[in-house]
Design a binder for these strands. Structure first.
Length: 430
RNA sequence: GUGAUUGUAGCUCAGUUGGUUAGAGCGCCAGGUUGUGGCCCUGGAGGUCGGGGGUUCGAGUCCCCUCAUUCACCCCA
């Protein structure tokens, strides 16, 4: 084993797996343009304060999971982005996007960093694709974003998904609810577990998230956030649900769903996959109308977004056998050179084929013909083209179909004509 | 951060109560005559048994430390 290994919580992706990533990324790009979302790319690191203000200083992400560093002594603290929304919002505010047009629909596929203990579906460097719709957060906008996300899953063929959705009300609703929750749990304080006790102080809403079965009954009896949401908020939430129903998107309203990031308000949602282990949240999102103001944007900017964990998506797809048909084919032609003196001529032939748009491979290690043929077979080349003394003299090359074993002898130009036929690949499926 | 788990060739794994030059399958490489693969046959390369320390006449096998993996808690995508 080598002296160096990949850093804890990071991993290498080799060609076979890279093909799976590419497949998923292509679907995301295609559907994004179908839905009118444009790609944004923002820097991998930002000033630390951006995340402290945006995500919330008391959240776990900011509190203990960020990779933070000082670029130089006395400089401003920087942090590797642990999520995308804050950075995208910062970019939008900096560019004053909304003065160019009232609505912006952005999407991304990006790497994020969180200093957590690695686990299945949880790494320290991971990727998300997601969308941010800026300028409106109406029920229609929420539905737009959700529909895009769900169609990606559908197009990829993913099953066993559950969409949970809830409304968190506005800041005021939640403030009142927080107090109600506190006074509900206060008498039980002795029965709460350590982390829940801490949450009682900092963020009582998160007690509702607890997986601790001992607390289940206590949580079930707690007041519901939904009952604190003002009539207008309820009406909007119902409108969102109607949009989903109209599109045939199944959902479960879950009044216990609260999200861990401070900026969410009103509609919040999460998608779970039954194909995953403990880390079963494959995507999530919601409205974050207050984020712009929090970041010093002056006024509120209505916004909705979601993020989907790429690694988790890939794991779920793999478990469901959705990559089985993903068979990358080899080159169309493998140029087999008889002897090393002909290597230059072989390269010349390969070059011509490639210039003609024909994917071509050739041995670069001066190996025996047998080895070259094995190689051609191993990488599933469609044809072998022989370059030998007789070819050099006659200008007629032997072309062998490696599937049917048929072999013909033709001039190079004729071979190029044949191989350029788009249907040539189909004939190899035998 | 807490708990448990695993760590032997490129990959998947065997290695009995500690005992001679550490094994298999797959993969890789080379041959099986003279310019041709896939099957088959033969041969070969490749491991300081995660790292460090200790116990012992002797450790891949026991003990300690360390690093990493995996799973769960936690958190989230």
């Amino acid at each position: 084993m080598s002296q160096y290994q990949a850093v804890k919580g990071t991993r290498d992706i080799f060609p076979e797996e890279a093909a799976q990533w590419k497949h998923v990324e292509e679907v995301v790009h295609t559907l994004a343009s179908l839905y009118g979302f444009s790609e944004v790319r923002t820097p991998v690191f930002e000033y630390t304060e951006l995340f402290q203000r945006g995500i919330g200083a008391t959240t776990d992400i900011v509190g203990k999971e960020m990779f933070t560093f000082l670029p130089d002594p006395g400089g401003r603290s920087l942090t590797l982005r642990p999520e995308m929304t804050a950075g995208v919002m910062r970019a939008a505010l900096q560019r004053n996007l909304l003065s160019q047009a009232p609505v912006h629909k952005l999407y991304y596929i990006s790497e994020l960093f969180r200093k957590e203990r690695p686990q299945a579906g949880r790494q320290r460097q991971f990727s998300q694709f997601g969308a941010e719709l800026l300028g409106v957060s109406s029920p229609a906008a929420v539905a737009e974003v959700l529909t895009f996300m769900m169609q990606v899953f559908e197009t990829l063929g993913l099953s066993g998904l559950r969409l949970r959705i809830n409304t968190l009300g506005d800041l005021e609703d939640r403030a009142r609810y927080r107090e109600a929750l506190r006074s509900y749990f206060q008498p039980y304080e002795g029965e709460l577990d350590e982390s829940s006790k801490e949450r009682l102080e900092k963020n009582p809403l998160r007690i509702l998230d607890s997986k601790n079965p001992a607390l289940r009954d206590m949580i079930a009896g707690a007041p519901r956030l939904f009952d604190f949401v003002k009539a207008e908020g309820v009406r909007e939430f119902e409108a969102v649900l109607r949009f989903l129903a109209d599109r045939g998107i199944d959902y479960d309203v879950d009044h216990l769903l609260v999200r861990g990031l401070d900026y969410y308000c009103h509609t919040a949602f999460e998608v779970q996959s039954t194909a995953l282990g403990a880390q079963d949240a494959i995507g999530g999102g919601g409205r974050y109308d207050g984020l712009a103001k929090e970041l010093g944007g002056g006024k509120e900017m209505p916004a909705v977004g979601f993020a989907v964990g790429m690694e988790r998506l890939l794991i779920a797809m793999e478990k469901q056998g959705l990559f089985a048909t993903l068979n990358p084919h080899g080159p169309l032609v493998y140029v087999v050179v008889q002897q090393s003196e002909l290597a230059d001529h072989g390269m010349q032939v390969a070059f011509k084929l490639r210039r003609s748009g024909i994917s071509t491979e050739i041995d670069l290690a001066a190996r025996s013909m047998k080895a070259q043929m094995r190689e051609a077979n191993r990488i599933r080349s469609g044809y072998a083209l022989f370059v030998g003394q007789s070819e050099l003299e006659s200008g007629q090359y032997a072309l062998k179909n490696l599937v049917t074993s048929e072999q013909t002898t033709l001039e190079l130009q004729a071979i190029i004509e044949i191989l350029r036929e788009p249907s040539i690949r189909e004939g190899l499926k035998a």
